[in-house]
Every structure is written in structure tokens, then in C-alpha cells.
Design a protein around this nucleic acid. Structure first.
Lengths: 200, 200, 200, 200
DNA sequence: AATGAATGAGAGTTCATTCAT
DNA sequence: AATGAATGAACTCTCATTCAT
């Protein structure tokens, strides 16, 4: 790799690092291109040599955050479809929980973006929304499959899938915020148990 | 009521109606006072005769949306604390579910605000955050009480409370969006059952 | 006087009192008609039943503040023109000083208006400027007369008059502000002496 | 100097020139950024590339106007303290008069700002007030020193200092306004004489 | 490749004044 | 006589993006 490419790469990384930090601390809308550029130590115009616009930088972070999650979920979905017994299914739910926990651990530094921008009105909200549709569709397919195989009782797959995703999101948020009341390892099991066996 | 009061009231309602619609469609930050005013057909300055600033209009919506919810939750919490048997407790969870469903039905036109602004950075995010702290505190107290009374098995009250609130939020959102896959009546029962008995 | 006239008068006084206080504390430009009206406890529109506009209220205060001053100065000017000896002239300067001091004492509560608005850009500045031209013209005429009668040495009447007016303004300001370093009685004499005999 | 620096400098000067003219003619508060920008022929936002806000432009003018004046006064104060005889002191007062006259001649195009904003309520008034405190403190120290050395008769230093500053201000104003009745050269001497020897 | 000057629409908010009630 | 709702231009300041250098 030539000197030029190396410098370009380094600068790209610097922009991404500063951009992420600022998106997280100030929100997508609250963080101007000028802020990012001056944090990196480049001119405003230079930013546009690396990314076509502010939105593209945000999309990049989303790709990195949701991409592996979606891949992992799709893998889990496939394996769950292959599962035989209720016991095996139960095990795989735990496996999936841990696989997802791994993804989340990886994505942790970027994860708060999801929450900050999920409901926002501008471009950021749109981007997040598209990824979430994909994730929820997978969750629904997993549960529908389980129900068809009578691995779980008769239930409304869409309702319960959304409930699971919602619950997961809320817990992830608490974990991200370092909520002291929450022990991550116990919480993963706890939630898997709640959804599998209820609170009774 | 005089002519002026009537007009004032009508205009106030028009502003609220347009303001809500715009807050919902464009988000708090994305919706300027100018947009609201011109949607109502008044001058920008006239808006400020009815509300001291944009934030005040948002707070009004929050009061209407969260106020009855909090009141209902607090009532349910009190009644649950008085419950004796596990069976009675279970019944009261259902009661609470339906009471909340009633609140939500009332608040439905405003409810999406919660989701739009929950994570936002500005004034709107602050206001919603304050209300949510209140709600989650009540949820935790409800569950802690149940656990102490051994009405539910030993569990982590905070984790599970957050999970419940998160699940509820997600389902409410789907319902708000008129998600066709979701039958509101069934969903209420379904969720109560899931949390009480699990999905197994 | 009928009940109506009495009420009208009382209201007029209330407006003036509140208006003066606000002009002084916030400046002419910084004090809205709304502020004055609500300080009095009347509606914004009612203000305009008593005064054609904000400027008119300011003009009223100026009339009261500068009117007696101008009258007193014109009287002093006339008496000084009738003075015979340098000694008599000197006495009359002292008399004038005390006469002016009397006017100022009367006008004290309004006097700060002069300083606040003298240089301001809007309507208030114009009004004050017109009064000051009148005052300075009288000062010049007084000094020119004295010079012609050889009661004072050959000097530039305009320069010295302006100097005297300027010095007086500055001292009045200090006095208004309750400058502790300043003894009003001593100061009056001091200035008269300085201008008559110099500082040597 | 590159083309861009040259242009930037030229524009900066254009902004300052237009800004000063407008501050003088309309007052700080009466002159909007829009007015300045359109006088220069630039967009409103461009103004903010050159100065962080409107106040900063005003502070710049004050620095240029008062800075040399304060420096000159402090120099004169030091020299006066070293003066021996009353005769020498008198000479130095004249010197100081001329030194100040030099400063004022330099500052002439900006000087009227002082008068326009001295009493104003907003940011401009604050800035001017701070500079004036410095100037008056120096004047007091000069006169106190002279009195202690018995170079002038026993007098109230504060009163007389303020009188001198006030007189000077008024004359400067007349000079600025090009008052035809006033001959600048004669006036400087005249005032020095008045304060030193009185008008008798 | 990199710069940063320039744009101009758009934000929230204030206010003197008018006029229908 | 009194009201206060309504206006709409004015204010300062921000920002994503473009483009000549």
C-alpha cells in the first residue's frame, strides 16, 4: 500500500472515530459536519471527499452495527428450523441469546446510535428503521417456525416476536448505560427463562 | 361563552391538532413553529399567544399522554400490594393490562410522540425521559412487591420490569402503527400470559 | 370631578409611574408596551387610549424633566444679563448653580432617563437631543453675554459653555448614581469655583 | 499574499467599514447583522465567518478606540507623578492635552461610538462601561497625585476628575460632530486653561 | 488532494401597533 | 372605555453543502 493510500485510510478512520463519538454524544442532528471536521483537524470540505454526505457516514455505522447481528440472527433462524425436540429448541434459544450477546458486545461502542436515532425524524431515523424491519422479520420467522413445529404452544408469532425484540432492546439499553442494577450474564438467562417459562 | 372565548378555544384546538400532527410526522425538532402556524392558518407570532414556546406545546401532549397512565399504574400498584393469593395477583395483572390498554386507547393519537422523542437529544427527549423514569419506577415497585410476597418466583425485579416495559412499548408501537398482523385484544392477553407463564 | 375623570386620572398616573420605572430600569427600547401595561394591570390596547404611542410617554417625561430646567436657565440668563459687576456676576453664577440644583433635585427620579437615552439611536435619542440643543443654546448665550461685558476674560463662549454643560452632566450622573465619593453640596460649590477660578 | 488572503482581508475591512458606519448611524441595537451584510454585499451567514457575533465587531472598535487612549493616559499619569514644580505640572497638563488630542484625532472615525453606546442597555453599553471605568480611574489617580504634591490647590479629586472627563467628553462630541462654532486647536488650550486658571 | 469562504434558508422568539369585540 | 387576539417583520445565529482556489 502506497503512502497515499495509507494516509487516506488513516484519515478515513479518524473521521469515523470522531464522527461516531459525536453522533453518540450529540445525536445525528445535533452534530454538524463542521464539528466532525474540526475534531479530526481537517477542513469542512475535506469531509466530502471521503463521504458523499453526513448521512453516508451514519449508514456506515449502521452497516457495522446491524450487519453482523442480522447475519447471526439469520444463522440462528436456519439452525432453529433444523432443530428437532423442544429440548433442543430450548438449547438453541440459549445459544442464540449468547450469539446475539456476542454481537452486541462487539457492537457495544456503536450500539447507542440505535437508540438515539431509532425514532428521530430525519435521515438517521429512516436508516435505522430499515434495519429494524429486517431484524424483526427474522424474529417473526423464527417464532413462526417454532410454533408450526409445536415446539412452543399456540401463540401469536408476530405479537410475541415484537415483544421479544422490544424486551431485548430495553435490556440492551440498560446494559449500554451500565445500569448498576443489571448483571449482564444473569440478565441474558433471566430473559430467556422469562420468555420460555414465564414469571410464575 | 362569548364569541372571543369560543374563537380562542377553537384556535387553541386547531394549534394543538396541527402541532400534534406535525410533531408526529416530522418530529419535535423537524417541525418548526412556522410550519405549525401556517398549517393552522395563523401568523407565526400568534402561536406565542397560546403557548409560551414550542416546548410548552410538547409538554402539554406529554401531560395528557403520560398523566393518566401514571395515575392508572399507581392505582394498580396499590391494588396489587393488597392482593393475597397468586391467583388474585394473576387476575390483577390482567386487570392492570386492561386498565393500561384503556389509557392507551385514550392516548392513542398522542402515543407515537413517546416513541419519536424518547431518544431525541433536545427538549423533547428531556421531557419524555422524566415521565419514563416515573413509569419504570412504578413497574419495578410492582414487581418487587410481588416477589417479596412470593407471588412470583425468585427473579431479578429490575431486569424483568425493564423487559416488561420494553415489551409493552414495542407492542404499543406496533398497535399504533396499525400493524395488521396484530390483534389488540388478543395481544393484551398474549403478553400477560407470556410474562406469567412463558412461551413454553 | 366625576368618578370617570378621577379613574382616568388615576390610571394615567399609574401608567406614568410604571412607565417611568421601566424606562429607567430597562431603557426605552428594552421596555415593551406589554411590560408597562401588565405592570399597571391593564391591557396592552388600553395603553393606547391614554397615549398615542410609546414615544409620547417618553416625551411627557422629558417635558417634566427638561421643562423647569430650561425655564430656570432662561430666568438665570435674563438676570445675568442684568448683572453689573464681576462680583455680582460671580454671585449669580452661584445662584444659578443652586437654582439648577433645585430643579435637578425635583427631577431626580426622572433624571437618569437623560443619560440612558441621550445617545440612543431610536425615538428616545431624538427627543433628548432636541431638549439638549435648547439647553446648550442658553448656556452659550449666558457666557457670551458675560464675555461681552468683560465680566469674564476673553474666551471661546461655545467651547466653554459646552465644557460646562458636559462637566455638569457628568457630575449629575455621579450624583444620581449615589456615588459615595461625591458630596452634592460641596460638589456644586467646587464646580462653580473650578470654572470661575480654575484648579490652580 | 495569496489571492484568498487578500480577498479575506479586503472583505474584513469592508465589513468593519460598513459595520462602523452603521453602528454610528443607527446605533448598535438599531443595526442588524443583515444591514451590515447587505451593505457589504455578502450573505448574512458570511458575517459570522469573520466575527463570532455582532458584539465581537463592536468590541474590536472599542479596543481600537480606547486602547491607545488608555495607554497614553497611563503614560501621562506616570510622567505627571514625576513632575516637580507647579509650572512643570502645568506644562505636562498641556502635553497630556495634546497627547490625548492626538489619540482622539486617530480615533476620530470611531469616537462617536463612545457616545452612542455609553448609556445603552445591551452588550454595547457593557463594553463601553468597562473601558470608561479604566479611564476614569486613571483621571482620578492623576489628580489625587497632583493634590498630594500641592501642585494644585486643595480640591475634591473625584469631583474635579469627573468634571474634567465630562467636559472633555462633551467637547470631543462637539468636535466629532464638526460643530462649526468650535476651533479644535483653540479648544484644547482653552479647556486646559479653564481648568487650570478658571474663567475669571 | 485539500481547503475554507460563501451561501441562504431556516430556526425560535419578540414587539409596536391595530381593531373587532 | 377597555380588551387582548392578531399581525408580520424584525432580530441573532446555525448549518449542510458547493466550489473556486
Amino acid at each position: 500500500m502506497g503512502v497515499r493510500e495509507a494516509r487516506k485510510l488513516a484519515r478515513r478512520q479518524a473521521i469515523e472515530s470522531a464522527g461516531l463519538a459525536l453522533f453518540l454524544s450529540e445525536g445525528y442532528a445535533g452534530c454538524s459536519v463542521e464539528k466532525i471536521a474540526s475534531a479530526v483537524g481537517i477542513a469542512r470540505g475535506t469531509f466530502y471527499l471521503y463521504y458523499p454526505d453526513k448521512r453516508a457516514l451514519f449508514e456506515l455505522f449502521c452497516e457495522r452495527m446491524y450487519g453482523p447481528l442480522v447475519a447471526s440472527l439469520e444463522g440462528s433462524a436456519a439452525r432453529l428450523k433444523a432443530a428437532g425436540s423442544s429440548e433442543e429448541q430450548r438449547l438453541m434459544y440459549l445459544q442464540m441469546s449468547f450469539a446475539l450477546a456476542g454481537c452486541l458486545e462487539q457492537a457495544r461502542p456503536v450500539m447507542l446510535l440505535h437508540f438515539r436515532e431509532k425514532w428521530s425524524a430525519g435521515p438517521a431515523g429512516e436508516v435505522v428503521g430499515e434495519w429494524m424491519s429486517r431484524i424483526e422479520a427474522i424474529a417473526v420467522s423464527i417464532l413462526e417456525d417454532a410454533r408450526e413445529r409445536k415446539l412452543v404452544r399456540e401463540l401469536d408469532a408476530v405479537t410475541v416476536s415484537l415483544a421479544i425484540v422490544g424486551a431485548a432492546e430495553r435490556l440492551i439499553w440498560a446494559w449500554l448505560e451500565g445500569d448498576e442494577r443489571l448483571d449482564p450474564d444473569k440478565a441474558t438467562l433471566e430473559v430467556a427463562n422469562v420468555f420460555f417459562s414465564g414469571i410464575a
